[in-house]
């Protein structure tokens, strides 16, 4: 963060910050503790999710990884996530370049439409797409889930990429064009390398959103199940719970690693001004 010299953080305001700090730490505990019970019970040597803990085991992980249906669902989620991430990032990149580089009439409205999915409950998005795919006789499958996820993740890609596009010096692109490079070569040799961290960050974040998304996949999947939909279908069988927890714990760890990587890339090297905009999402 930018150094702000001579703030009013004088002794007067320094004192209440201890109370605030305790509150903030308590809040972090509230944020993380509930989720930590998933890995804890996934390593507990008991078929029941209850205290006291019985002992350490990895058998639920073995059970999860040998469940063919769960692995199939995992593969489905990876496929849908990868295709959605690449498509949404590509579409987000085009739109982000358009709004940051061209003066366009109605750009605000166009942006509003693209950001709209963030403000509509997922159930409404889900059922309305069911109606559409039924009307055009497109059977519900992973294909329709992917279409839904691309729509859902484009706003995230846009937000990350606009911040990145705004964050570097546009005169670099102009210099390249002035010196005789074509628009295409300028994009590849100037814009793309500068935006690359934003692109990777967008790929990771859109992948996670798609990979973890439940409701739209639930409505649009038909008989094809993504991992969250499979997990949902298993929640009512108590005997399956420990292996579901094991898979859940793996997903949480993988998500955390990807998020930290994505956030680090997103914030690194972006100017302070753009950073403030990017944090908003």
């Amino acid at each position: 963060m930018m150094a702000t010299p001579r703030r009013i953080q004088s002794p007067k305001t320094a004192r209440p910050s201890i109370g605030l700090m305790i509150f903030a730490i308590a809040y972090l505990v509230f944020l993380y503790l509930p989720v930590l019970f998933l890995p804890v019970f996934s390593l507990n040597d008991s078929a029941f999710i209850k205290f006291p803990l019985e002992g350490f085991t990895t058998r639920w992980y073995d059970e999860a990884l040998s469940d063919q249906n769960m692995i199939a669902a995992l593969m489905n989620s990876l496929k849908v996530g990868a295709i959605s991430a690449v498509s949404a990032t590509f579409l987000g990149l085009l739109a982000a370049k358009a709004v940051t580089r061209y003066r366009m009439r109605g750009a605000g409205t166009a942006m509003g439409v693209i950001m709209l999915p963030l403000f509509i409950p997922e159930i409404v998005l889900g059922i309305s797409m069911v109606l559409l795919f039924d009307a055009v006789d497109l059977p519900l499958s992973l294909v329709t889930v992917t279409i839904g996820h691309i729509m859902l993740t484009v706003p995230f890609a846009m937000a990350v990429l606009i911040a990145r596009m705004d964050g570097f010096d546009k005169s670099l692109e102009e210099a390249s064009l002035d010196l005789g490079e074509s628009a295409w070569m300028t994009f590849w040799r100037v814009t793309f390398p500068l935006v690359l961290p934003g692109i990777v960050s967008s790929l990771l974040l859109t992948f996670i959103v798609s990979f973890d998304e439940f409701l739209i996949a639930f409505f649009l999947g038909g008989t094809d199940m993504t991992l969250p939909v499979y997990i949902w279908s298993q929640l009512r069988f108590p005997a399956k719970l420990p292996s579901v927890l094991a898979m859940g714990a793996l997903i949480l760890v993988a998500s955390c690693v990807l998020v930290v990587l994505a956030e680090w890339l997103r914030r690194r090297g972006v100017s302070d001004e753009a950073k403030k905009g990017a944090i908003g999402i």
């Binding site: 996670i208 973890d212 439940f214 997990i231 949902w232």
Partner: peptide, 11 residues
Amino acid sequence: LTIPFWTSYLL
């Protein structure tokens, strides 16, 4: 503060 935002809602 951001990590929970991105992890599985269902979980």
